[in-house]
Each structure stands twice: as structure tokens, then as C-alpha cells.
Amino acid sequence: MKRMWRKYLTVFVLAGLSGGLLLQTSQSVQQAEDELRRLEKSVDNERETIRVLHAEWAHLNRPDRLESLAGQYLELVPSSSDQMLVDPAVQLPDPFKPAIPSVKPAYLMNAQPVSIGSASPSSVVKPKTKPSKSDESFNDLLDNVQSGGGE
């Protein structure tokens, strides 16, 4: 009789153990699934954020905005054709080698501004310094989207 009890006890303990193990496994699976869902959601969110940032980047780098910013803050104007190079035969008076090798053709390195008869004034581009819409922020753009496109 005593031996039988011991056997029953073993069986019950084993059953209890395996039950507990099963519960724990299922719980951890559930947790892992929750974590997975959370991660997937955050990946989706990050992707969406990246898309928004891409759009914002493109919007802030609009050529007209860059041009007006350059006009405001840089003392540079677009180069005109008579400021550009290039006669492979002519050497710069004081040629120097660039620190980083250039991918440009070698002769450009030795280029010298060429002197051609002066351009008619109309051929030199003068950027408008302040186009009206240059300060439009990305949020203003998003505000514009309100009504969507066409009807």
C-alpha cells in the first residue's frame, strides 16, 4: 500500500511539474509574441518616420529655397561661363595637387579660367534674394494638404 502511494505521488508530481512547465512555456510564448508585435509596430513607426523625414528633407532642399538661402547667407553667386575653365594646354600659374585625388579628369586640375569676350549682361544669372515662399516650413506644407488633391 505504501509503495502504491509513492507511485501515485510520483505521477502527480510529474503531472504537476509538466503542467507548470507548459503554463510557463505558453506564457513566455505569449510574451514573446507581444514583444514581436511591439517591435513590428515600432519598426512600422520608424519606417513611417523615415518617410516623413525624407519628404521633409526634399521639401527643405527645394532649389528655390536653397537659392534664396544662399543669396541671404553666402557671398557667392552662380558661376558664369566665362569663369569656367578650360584649356588642357594652359597651366595654372601655381598648380598644386589636391590632398584627396579627384575623380575629375586630370586636365581639369590644371585648368585656368579662360578669357573670352565679355558676356552680355543678360547672360549672368542674378538670383532673386528673397522669393516669397522660401520660408515655408514643412508643417506649412502639411497644412496645405488638408483638402487633398483634385475634386
Binding site: P78, S81, D82, V86, D87, L108, V114, S123, V124, V125
Partner: peptide, 16 residues
């Protein structure tokens, strides 16, 4: 003016 801008944007070498 467009051609002149294209020259500086695309870096078109001038011809002598």
C-alpha cells in the same frame, strides 16, 4: 540665362 545656369549646374565645360 537658362543655358548659363545649366552650365554651372551641370558643370558643362566651355569650349574655346
Amino acid at each position: 540665362r537658362v543655358v548659363s545656369s545649366m552650365g554651372s549646374i551641370l558643370g558643362i565645360p566651355v569650349r574655346t
